[in-house]
Simulated assay, not measured.
Amino acid sequence: MVERVVATPAAEELIARLKAIHGKLMFHQSGGCCDGSAPMCYPAGEFKVGGSDVFLGRIAGCPVYIGAAQFEYWSHTQLIIDAVPGRGAGFSLEAPEGMRFLTRGRVFSDAEAEDLLALGPPARGDGVH
């Protein structure tokens, strides 16, 4: 089964470091419509997920959400969360680590898109995932 969101090994390594410091984590992609956008990483429960946020899946055990408007831009794409050298944005937990999370995309194949369509729409977020 195809996943809507995956992490690179570099992202998984950074997530493990951040979990050791902060405990359980969550991600939210609230802005950006293309490669190079930055998902925000928070301690679990620090970001209030709304009813219009879409649950994409988990990376390294952490739930990943996206704003409904952003999901419309990205719905045909698998989000690939990567970590690269640089300064994290805003309140994202990786900011002081000298790394930043980065969203890349890969367009789903026709077969993958059909599989996702058969599953129905993704769950809307309520912080329970």
Rank of each mutant, 00 (worst) to 15 (best):
R4T: 10
R4P: 11
V5Y: 10
V6A: 07
A7L: 12
A7G: 09
A7Q: 11
T8V: 10
T8I: 09
P9M: 03
A10T: 07
A11L: 03
E12H: 07
E12R: 14
E13K: 13
L14H: 00
L14K: 03
L14G: 00
L14F: 00
I15F: 12
I15E: 09
A16M: 00
A16S: 14
A16E: 14
L18N: 00
K19T: 07
K19Y: 06
K19I: 04
A20Q: 15
A20I: 02
H22K: 08
H22E: 04
G23N: 13
G23M: 05
G23E: 02
M26G: 10
F27L: 15
F27S: 06
Q29I: 12
Q29Y: 01
G31N: 06
C34T: 09
C34L: 06
C34P: 00
C34Q: 09
D35L: 01
D35R: 08
D35Y: 00
G36C: 01
S37P: 02
S37M: 09
A38D: 08
A38F: 10
P39M: 07
C41M: 06
Y42A: 03
Y42E: 04
Y42W: 15
Y42P: 02
Y42D: 06
G45T: 00
G45M: 01
K48P: 02
K48Q: 12
K48N: 10
K48I: 08
V49H: 05
V49I: 15
V49S: 03
G50T: 13
G51P: 13
S52T: 08
S52P: 01
D53N: 08
D53H: 09
F55A: 11
F55W: 13
L56M: 13
L56Y: 04
G57R: 06
G57Q: 07
G57I: 07
A60V: 02
V64P: 07
Y65C: 05
I66L: 06
G67R: 13
A68K: 06
A68W: 04
A68I: 02
A68L: 04
A69E: 05
Q70F: 03
Q70A: 13
Q70W: 04
F71D: 12
W74E: 03
W74R: 05
S75D: 05
S75E: 10
T77D: 11
Q78V: 06
D82E: 10
P85G: 03
R87H: 04
A89E: 10
G90F: 11
G90A: 13
G90W: 09
E94I: 00
A95M: 11
P96F: 01
M99K: 13
R100T: 04
R100W: 03
F101V: 02
L102W: 09
T103D: 05
R104I: 05
G105H: 09
G105E: 04
R106F: 08
R106I: 05
R106N: 07
V107Q: 14
V107T: 15
V107S: 12
E112S: 12
E112H: 11
E112R: 12
A113W: 12
A113M: 13
E114S: 10
E114A: 15
D115A: 14
D115V: 14
L116Q: 10
A118I: 01
A118S: 13
G120W: 00
G120N: 01
P122T: 11
P122H: 11
P122S: 11
P122Q: 12
R124A: 08
G125T: 13
G127L: 15
G127D: 14
V128E: 15
H129Q: 15
H129A: 15
